[in-house]
């Protein structure tokens, strides 16, 4: 608009990446899923994944790049937005737990027949790993505040290794249980067990994804402080949820 000359020059803002990311999600998730699971057409599923996943990667990468580039004019709302979003996430976990309670409290015999002994060692190890990863990330943040880029990167990497180890434990545990014939559909216990721990593990994985989005620009010496803080907050949230998972699923 030609007439206005306020202190900020405004023009129509645009960004390619939101649309690209959504298109990717559209192909990869609903179309990919339905092709494979509903219509049993793995060829088609592969094609949709092949279109969708690169689009998602481009979308996320481009979006992050824009975010990092504009870091200087970023408003400080993200650190309020994220907690608001986390309210929503909490509700999903709460719904899952509520479902678990409803299943569990309306049956006489728990765990139902067909449930093997689920070891408590692995969850304990996982707890230690995840809790320490929260501390290592915080250590990284402190380094960053002190202007020590190298230290930040190191601690970030350590955190990521711990996160990956956590997911590794889950995979190990799952393969063990599945080997014993305790699968998704065995009974109500397996249903709740895999859904809740799996959903949590997917959050850990998502957290790792966010760390990658922090790490790559950081390797090039660029950081968005908002992104770093946000990633941290999310990681701590996932950590806290884990305590509920452990106590409800393993120790109750």
């Amino acid at each position: 608009m030609a007439e206005g000359h306020g202190h900020v020059e405004h023009h129509w803002e645009y960004s390619y990446y939101p649309l690209i990311a959504v298109a990717g999600i559209f192909f990869a998730l609903p179309l990919g899923f339905a092709s494979y699971f509903e219509y049993g057409n793995s060829m088609l599923a592969t094609i949709f994944l092949g279109i969708g996943v690169p689009l998602i990667v481009i979308g996320v990468a481009g979006w992050t790049a824009e975010g990092v580039a504009n870091a200087h004019r970023e408003p400080g709302y993200a650190m309020t937005g994220l907690p608001i979003f986390i309210v929503s996430e909490t509700m999903i976990f709460l719904s899952l737990f509520a479902s678990y309670w409803m299943l569990r409290l309306t049956t006489e015999v728990w765990p139902p027949a067909g449930t093997p002994e689920i070891g408590l060692t692995i969850p304990l190890i996982m707890t230690v790993i995840l809790v320490s990863s929260s501390f290592t990330y915080h250590a990284g943040e402190l380094k960053l505040e002190a202007g020590d880029m190298g230290g930040f990167k190191t601690w970030l990497l350590i955190t990521m290794v711990l996160g990956a180890a956590f997911v590794g434990c889950t995979v190990y545990e799952y393969s063990h249980l599945i080997h014993e014939g305790f699968v998704f559909g065995t009974n109500a216990k397996s249903t709740a067990f895999y859904s809740i721990t799996g959903f949590h593990a997917s959050h850990v994985t998502a957290g790792l994804g966010i760390f990658i989005a922090v790490l790559i620009p950081a390797l090039a010496g660029k950081v968005s402080h908002t992104l770093v803080k946000g990633a941290g907050l999310y990681w701590h949230f996932v950590d806290v949820i884990w305590f509920f998972v452990v106590s409800q699923i393993y120790f109750w």
Binding site: F33, F37, E38, S99, M102, L103, T106, T107, P112, V183, F184, G185, T186, N187, A188, K189, S190, T191, Y194, S195
Partner: peptide, 18 residues
């Protein structure tokens, strides 16, 4: 979705679902 495609038992009374 899980019940339909992954065979979980959330809503299958025979397996303890509701």
């Amino acid at each position: 979705l899980f019940d339909k495609y992954f065979g979980t038992a959330f809503f299958v009374p025979d397996k303890g679902g509701d």
